[in-house]
Design a protein around this nucleic acid. Structure first.
Lengths: 150, 150
DNA sequence: ACACCAACGTTGGTGTCGCCAACGTAGCAC
DNA sequence: GTGCTACGTTGGCGACACCAACGTTGGTGT
């Protein structure tokens, strides 16, 4: 009556939102375990990777691109700047803005974290074939696109 | 330079873990908006629905089945009991346990919330065809099964 | 020139979810 | 009886997503 089966919430386990939640939870766990080795979190990676790939940007812009609230960007940039991975400079063209740039060390860390993320993807998608991975990515992309278009 | 495009974090938008996270976030938002009308949250639904579908169970058992920590179950059951949706009774066969049962009102609320959840699923999967929905469910199920088999 | 509104960075919250440590109580195996 | 385990409960923590408000700055309309 009390086996060690921790799963299957009855009819819940068939609802897509439940499955999405569970899958995302597992993915987040894999990622955060990887990030722990860098002593950073998901927010750090999103911002740092975006900076490394797309070049300097204002905090508000970064937040928009990464789906992170302006107010949350502040603290994370503070942290990244404190580690020398990022530089915060006032925008001479618009004194409301700060221009955030990844330092050399920042770009380096972004690359290393990228490797960590790649490893997590492989672990995450381990049970799926290449074709299935593409299917999943395509379906999720459609979903996300539809719902982020407001 | 500052269009109202809040998305596409560069190379991030192609990683499955990012897509899963985004999709799950949208799903959670849809669900929680629906739950708000019942003045309840996701935890409440999971427990209540499980009780309504599978009958009475101990708190620890419920937690295991729903993927909710024992300590979190306590507060939610308190809340549900305070609303008369659930009854907490000591288990005569094992005095460590509490037997939680859904009341008539609880089963009723579970049904109503089930409708809300169904509506959320439809909104969530709106951009996908029936075949694609089945594909997605199948792929996610495989993923979750693989990773919850520890 | 002035008033007005929008955007920026920042502070300081809120809520949900997932998890962990510790305690006292109760059952079970040896 | 001595241990080990499970139970419910309390109280905490961290990550993430979000919101309200403020002072500052830019841009617009008049």
């Amino acid at each position: 009556m009390d086996s060690t089966a921790p799963q299957s919430p009855a009819g819940l386990s068939t609802t897509p939102s439940w499955l999405l939640n569970q899958a995302a939870t597992h993915a987040a766990r894999l990622l955060s375990e990887g990030f722990a080795a860098h002593d950073l979190r998901g927010y750090h990676y999103r911002l740092l990777a975006t900076l490394a790939e797309e070049g300097p940007a204002s905090q508000a812009d970064l937040g928009r691109r990464c789906g992170i609230d302006r107010s949350d960007v502040v603290a994370v940039i503070n942290d990244l700047a404190g580690r020398g991975l990022v530089v915060r400079a006032p925008d001479p063209a618009d004194r409301r803005r700060n221009v955030i740039s990844a330092t050399v060390a920042g770009v380096d860390e972004a690359r290393r974290m990228g490797d960590t993320v790649e490893r997590a993807q492989r672990d995450l998608l381990a049970p799926l074939s290449t074709t299935e991975r593409e299917q999943l990515t395509r379906l999720l992309t459609r979903l996300v696109r539809h719902h982020s278009g407001h």
